[in-house]
Amino acid sequence: MQVRIWVHLKPLLLALALGSLMTTTMAETPQEAAVKKLIEPRLGDGVKVDAVTKTPYLGMFEVRVGKDIFYTDASAKYMFVGRILDAQSSRDFTKERMDEISKVKFTDLPLDLAMKSVKGNGKRVIAVFEDPNCGYCKKFRKTLQEVDNVTVYTFMYNILAPDSAVKSKNVWCSPNRDKSWDDWMLSGKLPATAPASCLTSPNEKVLSLGQSLGVSGTPTIIFADGSRIPGFIDATALEAKFASIK
């Protein structure tokens, strides 16, 4: 059962507390170190706690394991799994932290493993992880047909079916990768079988990349500011997201 904890803090106090929580370069306090030492062995063999941070909520501590977070008390006796929301505004503090933790440094992405397409001036840039057998990825391809002035880097992330990697390799080995991908995703036209001479495919490297970034489903859209949106969005939502990026 997932737990939601509703809290209300004065705006100034909350802003100061959250600012401290999101400053990842701060040294771990002795109390945080003590909680980490207590909670880690209680999570099972091989589980490594990356960070413990005291929160402004009810004396709880945020525990981060990879890209997941949960909460515990100072004695590490109880675990709270769920979301913390402001009772008056419904602001989701847990989601904000998850978004912060999952940010990607866009310039570090190995874009040579992706297909590149440019529409208009291409100033707005995204990377998207897609599987050739993903229905929502095909819907998102239609979304991309409705927007202009965008550069799209597509990582073929083959996680849904045994033949996903085969289809992706056929696309990768085609003379025009981007057209071949759109032909399949938008029109259902299968790419030609890859020639025997085409021995390269980024499949394994893209799988490793996606796993390292915590990409668990397709489509997953990564924006130039490092934020991400998992799942399908329509053109209106995509334009709104672009407008929100400073």
Score class of each variant (00 low, 15 high):
1 M>K: 14
5 I>P: 02
7 V>S: 02
10 K>A: 12
13 L>E: 08
14 L>I: 04
15 A>L: 15
16 L>K: 15
17 A>C: 06
22 M>G: 02
22 M>F: 09
23 T>Y: 13
24 T>G: 15
24 T>I: 06
26 M>V: 11
27 A>M: 13
28 E>Q: 09
29 T>W: 10
30 P>C: 14
31 Q>N: 14
32 E>G: 01
33 A>F: 00
34 A>L: 07
36 K>R: 07
37 K>E: 10
38 L>E: 02
38 L>R: 12
38 L>I: 07
42 R>C: 02
43 L>R: 02
44 G>E: 07
44 G>A: 12
49 V>C: 01
49 V>I: 14
49 V>W: 00
50 D>P: 11
52 V>D: 00
52 V>H: 00
55 T>C: 06
56 P>N: 10
63 V>R: 00
64 R>E: 03
64 R>L: 01
64 R>K: 15
65 V>R: 01
66 G>T: 06
67 K>C: 02
69 I>L: 00
69 I>S: 00
69 I>E: 00
70 F>M: 12
70 F>H: 01
70 F>Q: 02
71 Y>G: 03
71 Y>Q: 02
71 Y>L: 05
73 D>E: 12
75 S>Q: 14
76 A>D: 04
80 F>L: 14
81 V>S: 11
82 G>Q: 13
84 I>N: 02
87 A>V: 04
87 A>N: 12
89 S>R: 11
90 S>W: 05
90 S>T: 13
91 R>L: 08
93 F>A: 00
94 T>I: 09
97 R>I: 08
98 M>L: 15
99 D>N: 06
100 E>N: 06
101 I>D: 12
105 K>D: 04
106 F>V: 07
106 F>M: 09
107 T>N: 13
107 T>Q: 15
116 K>W: 07
119 K>I: 04
119 K>S: 11
121 N>P: 01
122 G>V: 03
130 E>D: 12
133 N>D: 08
135 G>F: 03
137 C>Y: 08
138 K>T: 01
139 K>H: 04
139 K>Y: 04
139 K>Q: 15
142 K>T: 04
145 Q>T: 07
145 Q>M: 14
146 E>T: 03
148 D>W: 12
150 V>H: 08
150 V>L: 05
150 V>R: 09
151 T>E: 02
153 Y>A: 00
153 Y>G: 03
155 F>H: 06
157 Y>T: 06
158 N>D: 09
160 L>M: 09
162 P>C: 11
163 D>S: 08
165 A>M: 09
166 V>R: 15
170 N>D: 14
171 V>N: 06
171 V>S: 11
172 W>Q: 08
173 C>F: 07
173 C>Q: 03
175 P>L: 05
176 N>M: 01
177 R>N: 05
177 R>E: 05
179 K>M: 12
180 S>V: 07
183 D>F: 04
184 W>M: 11
187 S>N: 13
189 K>C: 12
191 P>D: 10
192 A>K: 15
193 T>F: 14
193 T>S: 10
194 A>R: 01
198 C>P: 09
200 T>Y: 05
202 P>A: 05
204 E>A: 14
204 E>L: 09
207 L>W: 06
210 G>M: 09
213 L>Q: 08
216 S>W: 06
217 G>M: 11
218 T>V: 11
219 P>T: 15
220 T>W: 08
223 F>G: 00
228 R>P: 02
231 G>Y: 13
231 G>D: 06
232 F>Y: 12
237 A>N: 10
239 E>F: 03
241 K>H: 07
245 I>R: 07
245 I>N: 13
